[in-house]
């Protein structure tokens, strides 16, 4: 029993990581109908900035996180203004090609700057090791991840539901033309949302560096997971993304623990079934 709960807990921790990485893509898809595969590269960039700050400059762990968030947010908004905004009206395939081109470039650039091997670094002492919680022995870092992810999810959901800015963002997701006609500065809202989404992706990369390993192939390895989360959850819904992330995280960890011979087979199969059954995602709106 304890073993099952521990595995379940690890799945939840992984799920929150996926949530932080993919929520930005979900919102940009819902709002701008923009398929941004480079989201995975933002995560990788976040990971590298984090490792450089922590290991190279000895900056404390908790200070590294906001640095990563703002740095990646700035990079993503610069890219949005320079490139992405010209592609909002093109078809899905063009966007996929553009952003996968950027992913390819980012892989080569990361290799150039940080080398092709896995990054080795030391996490602070207080976050490694294990703790006993309700009779379960859990890794401290995963406990931190679950707490952090939960705070992020609650903040985002409430921020979107309860604040003025959230209302404007939702208006843009629902109907961009009407929102523009009502005098909302959609361009600014897009750029702002893009920055937050990018920053979160960077955070996700930073938090996963320790758990998933960081090398230049990171974007290609996790791109598929991010896409699965977004398409299963339904574009533009934060709750849907959260549910899909947690489900995927649990299914993946459990599957690899109990039926390792199937590997990722189960989640791929589930993805295909869900997409055939509900092409707009479990919580997505109909056509």
């Amino acid at each position: 029993m304890a073993a099952i709960l521990t595995v379940l807990f690890n799945g939840v921790a992984y799920g929150f990581l996926l949530f932080v990485m993919s929520v930005g893509l979900s919102v940009s898809l819902g709002m701008m109908n923009f398929v941004n595969l480079a989201q995975a590269s933002f995560s990788m960039l976040g990971g590298y900035i984090f490792v450089t700050a922590l290991q190279g400059y000895g900056i404390p762990f908790m200070l590294c996180l906001p640095i990563v968030f703002f740095a990646v947010a700035i990079v993503s908004v610069v890219l949005e203004r320079l490139i992405f905004r010209y592609f909002y009206k093109t078809d899905d395939l063009t966007q996929v090609l553009l952003t996968i081109g950027l992913v390819f470039m980012s892989i080569a650039m990361a290799t150039y700057v940080w080398g092709g091997t896995y990054q080795r670094f030391d996490m602070p002492a207080w976050i490694i090791g294990q703790k006993d919680v309700f009779g379960l022995t859990l890794e401290t870092y995963r406990i931190f991840l679950v707490g952090f992810g939960a705070v992020m999810a609650v903040t985002l959901i409430f921020g979107l539901e309860r604040t003025n800015l959230g209302a404007m963002v939702r208006a843009c997701v629902d109907n961009r033309r009407v929102a523009t006609a009502c005098g909302l500065n959609t361009e600014l809202i897009f750029a702002f949302t893009f920055a937050i989404g990018g920053g979160l992706a960077g955070l996700g990369g930073a938090l996963s560096a320790n758990l998933l390993g960081l090398d230049p192939n990171f974007p290609l390895r996790y791109l598929v997971y991010i896409l699965i989360v977004v398409s299963i959850g339904g574009m533009g819904t934060i709750t849907g993304t959260l549910v899909a992330s947690l489900a995927l995280g649990i299914a993946d960890v459990m599957g690899k623990y109990y039926v390792p011979q199937f590997g990722s087979f189960i989640i791929y199969l589930l993805t295909v079934i869900v997409m055939l059954w509900r092409p707009h995602g479990l919580m997505g709106r109909g056509a």
């Binding site: 899905d92 398409s231 011979q261 990722s264 087979f265 295909v272």
Partner: peptide, 26 residues
């Protein structure tokens, strides 16, 4: 996939590819 379009179509074709790839690898 004959009824699926857009991002759903991209995901289903990608997913089926990954399934067969995974199978061959394993």
């Amino acid at each position: 996939v004959q009824r699926v379009t857009g991002v759903g179509l991209l995901m289903v074709t990608l997913g089926l590819n990954l399934i067969v790839f995974d199978f061959v690898l394993r």
